[in-house]
Design a protein around this nucleic acid. Sequence first.
DNA 1: GAGTATTTTCGACTCCAGTCAACTTTTTTT
DNA 2: AAAAAAAGTTGACTGGAGTCGAAAATACTC
Lengths: 212, 212
Amino acid sequence: MPGIRETKKKETRQAIMQAAMTLFSEKGFDQTSIEELAKAAGIGKGTIYGYFQTKTDILHAFCEDELERLHQELTSNADQEIPILQQMVSIYMAEFKKITENREFARLFMQQTAFPRDVDLDRHLEHENDYFKLLFPLLEKAQERGELRKDVELLYITGHFYGLYLLLVSAWFSGRVQTEEASMALQTLFRQAIEGLHPRPEPLSNEGNKHV
Amino acid sequence: MPGIRETKKKETRQAIMQAAMTLFSEKGFDQTSIEELAKAAGIGKGTIYGYFQTKTDILHAFCEDELERLHQELTSNADQEIPILQQMVSIYMAEFKKITENREFARLFMQQTAFPRDVDLDRHLEHENDYFKLLFPLLEKAQERGELRKDVELLYITGHFYGLYLLLVSAWFSGRVQTEEASMALQTLFRQAIEGLHPRPEPLSNEGNKHV
DNA sequence: GAGTATTTTCGACTCCAGTCAACTTTTTTT
DNA sequence: AAAAAAAGTTGACTGGAGTCGAAAATACTC
């Protein structure tokens, strides 16, 4: 039996996030005041701070939820036998598309995710570990198939892909990469990461070197 | 002849940044109010907004100045004949060390640099281009020496290194990489990026594969 | 089910970033 | 060198994020 309290807490939390997303989308993050938001959610201003530490946290929690759901989807649909390059491109492009739906949300979310405040560290690490649980098995299988070096820790391999993902998002913000070019750019970067930046006498396969 | 106005503008700007850094360092960014800062700089509160758009901008401008100076230094000291791996590690570790001197500054600076607001885009791109002017010649020489593929655009090569740098800083914030380990971690990542994540029958040289 | 403890809600309040219209200083014009 | 224009300075003011202590709601105890 959940108890009145627990039930209401979940409901209220949802109500806040729901109201927040509606208002943030309609009027923008800065143009929405907490007081307004509280009224829309049918609660008092102070109550919000029993659920979230800051205004940004509301947005961040929403984005994390959305991505969590996306990851569930990706995990169930994943075809673990296609080349790791394509798997990684699919996963990170799905994330990229989701995140870049709203530029303002994306900025605030990425700022906190990539460079989190110390108070958020625990939550952040937990979330990251969930992500690893999705990625590691795929990378491990790719290692077995001989597509990835076995002498590189999975954490580092993930790092390479995640680093390039960060780069892509950053380049998108600065306007160096357009939304339509993103998929191509990420694929190119990932392929180069796999092939290496060092020149080699003979190409590894004939898929390579078609694009810069 | 500079004119009274121009001279004073530069002085005032310096006074603001100077006072800001003293106070931010002593009391922390959030604990320092603009009014306090204005008093310390010997000017009125409103005047600050004739020089900087936001409180964060003051910090950001300071960090950019510091990094600019660092780049000058790096450019003049650069030995363009040592392996590109070492050159890149030196440059990015210098930046890492500078930036991580103060955790709070680092967070605010990186958040704005990696995911800039639209109003800051022009300044940001200009600054990035200056950076490229430092890096491109080094990378080009490395291509000539056969250390880097010639079929990958310089912008992309820079991207690989910068992406891994972002990753390192992000991992430092999350506590996955300690300050003392950073240099080793970056070197490993950069070497892996050069060698590639794909396994190869015979190692390229005997420097490789010693660390994960 | 009355009484006590604990958790949650609330909005008046504090504090501060950022604005703005009046004012001062410098430059340009005549 | 006086007048007009332009650029820079200022602090009282505004609006909103986040706090806090009192009040309400729920949960425990006998």
